[in-house]
C-alpha cells in the first residue's frame, strides 16, 4: 500500500496547502543576473518548485504558491538577483497544521 502515497503527485501535495494569492508579487528576479549564474541554487532549494530555468538562460518564477520561507534569497549567490519581502498582509500561505 506504500504505492498509494508514492502515487500522489507534487501538484496534488501542493494543492493540500492553502494559498491566498496577493495582487502583487513579493519576489522579483533579475533575469540578467540569472543568465550569468551557473549554480542556480534557487531551482533546487525552493521547496515549492517556484523557480524554473528557461531556454534563454533566465529564470521563470511563481510567487502564488510561495511558503514564504526565504530560502531562495539566502542561497542565491548572484548578489541581489532575488529580492524578496513578505506578501501583503492577509495574503500568501495559510497553514492549518503547521
Amino acid at each position: 500500500m506504500t504505492r498509494r502515497s508514492a502515487a500522489v503527485s507534487f501538484e496534488d501535495v501542493m494543492a493540500t496547502t492553502e494559498f491566498r494569492p496577493a495582487p502583487a508579487a513579493h519576489i522579483t528576479v533579475d533575469g540578467d543576473a540569472c543568465r550569468g549564474c551557473t549554480t542556480r541554487a534557487c531551482v533546487t532549494a525552493c521547496p515549492a518548485r517556484l523557480f524554473v530555468p528557461i531556454a534563454d538562460g533566465g529564470i521563470l518564477f511563481n510567487y502564488e504558491q510561495c511558503f514564504e520561507c526565504g530560502g531562495c534569497y539566502l542561497v542565491c549567490n548572484e548578489k541581489g538577483a532575488i529580492s524578496w519581502s513578505y506578501p501583503e498582509g492577509g495574503a500568501g500561505v495559510v497553514y492549518r497544521r503547521g
Binding site: 502515497s5 493540500t16 511558503f67 530560502g71
Partner: peptide, 26 residues
C-alpha cells in the same frame, strides 16, 4: 522527504496516511 518516508524503518509508520498539508520554513 520522499526518501525518508520510503525508508524501511519509517514507511510502515506513515503507510496509508492521506497528505493533508505540505509546507516549509527556515
Amino acid at each position: 522527504l520522499a526518501g525518508l518516508t520510503a525508508h524501511p524503518a519509517i514507511a510502515p509508520l506513515v503507510d496509508g496516511g492521506e497528505v493533508v498539508e505540505f509546507g516549509a520554513h527556515l
